[in-house]
């Protein structure tokens, strides 16, 4: 339908229909106002001084840890499907020309010779600083705002900036194999970091470093002191609060954040890669 067709009676009907949807949406939102139970959020707020001060990180990887694991798989599904659709024409659309001809379409012509001086000299430093900024965000995820996904997106944007600014001579030239390796490293680390918790307490991805829940009477088993030290000590912090100084540790949360970051770098850069270079077994980024 085109916007021109909406003149006259049709336009009035469309406007009324949209108005009805709008009223329905906003009234359903208004009914929620002030009716949200604090629930598990308050529990985590109460426990904040015993683990990562960034509450969102502890909620995301402790309470919803398993959920987030599956979610990191979803982004791979996105990457794989977009590669399948645009890469080699596996879908086989009817009337589509042969794969060779599609692949032979001219790649994006980026004239780096006529690049503005500012871009030429400052794009590379900016790319390096963006990478460093991403690493700062992921390493300080548990103490201040930030996290693995944010780091992944920042580093992917550095990759895209590098590709867009320098074309085929991109300095940050992550190859297909490297990207797949990053993703595999990230997802593997994320999954395997759950093993210590599973061996000791039967809970996958139990935070053995911080060991929040062992005080509960219904909790099955205690975490050995050695595990608590190995995963807890490297991230121990002194929290200077109003009530005094508390020694808290985020446990395995920073490691999970790093894993998530690598996973996201792998997946999003794969998507960019497929869009920019296409996906074929011949050497990527090479002019035919």
């Amino acid at each position: 339908m085109e916007i021109k067709e909406l003149r006259g009676l049709r336009g009035v009907v469309a406007a009324v229909a949209l108005l009805i949807i709008f009223v329905g949406v906003i009234s359903s939102f208004i009914q929620l106002e002030g009716n949200v139970a604090r629930g598990i959020s308050e529990e985590y707020n109460k426990l904040a001084y015993r683990m990562a001060p960034n509450n969102l990180a502890s909620w995301l990887y402790d309470y919803r840890g398993f959920d987030t694991l599956i979610e990191t798989g979803v982004i791979y599904v996105g990457a794989v499907v977009s590669v399948m659709v645009i890469g080699r024409g596996l879908v086989g659309l009817k009337g589509m020309r042969e794969e060779e001809e599609v692949a032979a379409a001219p790649p994006i012509a980026l004239k780096t010779e006529t690049m503005p001086v500012l871009l030429k000299y400052f794009a590379l430093p900016v790319v390096i600083l963006l990478l460093a900024y991403g690493l700062l965000v992921v390493t300080s995820a548990s103490t201040s705002g930030g996290g693995g996904f944010q780091c992944g997106v920042i580093i992917s944007s550095a990759y895209l900036l590098s590709v867009v600014a320098y074309g085929r001579r991109s300095p940050l030239n992550m190859r297909k194999k490297a990207l797949v390796a990053f993703g595999a490293l990230g997802w593997g680390l994320y999954t395997l970091i759950g093993l210590p918790g599973y061996l000791t307490t039967n809970f996958w991805q139990y935070n053995v470093g911080a060991d929040l829940w062992s005080g509960l009477p219904s909790f099955p088993a205690a975490v050995p002191e050695a595990f608590r030290q190995i995963f807890g000590e490297p991230f121990k912090l002194a929290l200077h609060l109003e009530e005094g100084v508390y020694y808290a540790t985020s446990g395995i949360l920073p490691i999970i954040n790093v894993a998530e970051a690598f996973n996201v770098i792998g997946a999003i850069c794969l998507i960019f890669f497929a869009f920019v270079y296409g996906w074929s077994d011949s050497a990527e980024g090479v002019e035919k």
């Binding site: 991109s170 121990k236 002194a238 020694y247």
Partner: peptide, 28 residues
């Protein structure tokens, strides 16, 4: 030190920086 969490991020960032740095090409 007692509060190791202040040092570890620096080391982790360094290691991850080396990993990402090996992905870069060309001269600087």
């Amino acid at each position: 030190p007692e509060v190791l969490g202040e040092v570890t991020p620096t080391l982790v960032a360094f290691v991850l920086g080396v990993i990402l740095g090996t992905q870069m090409e060309g001269k600087i």
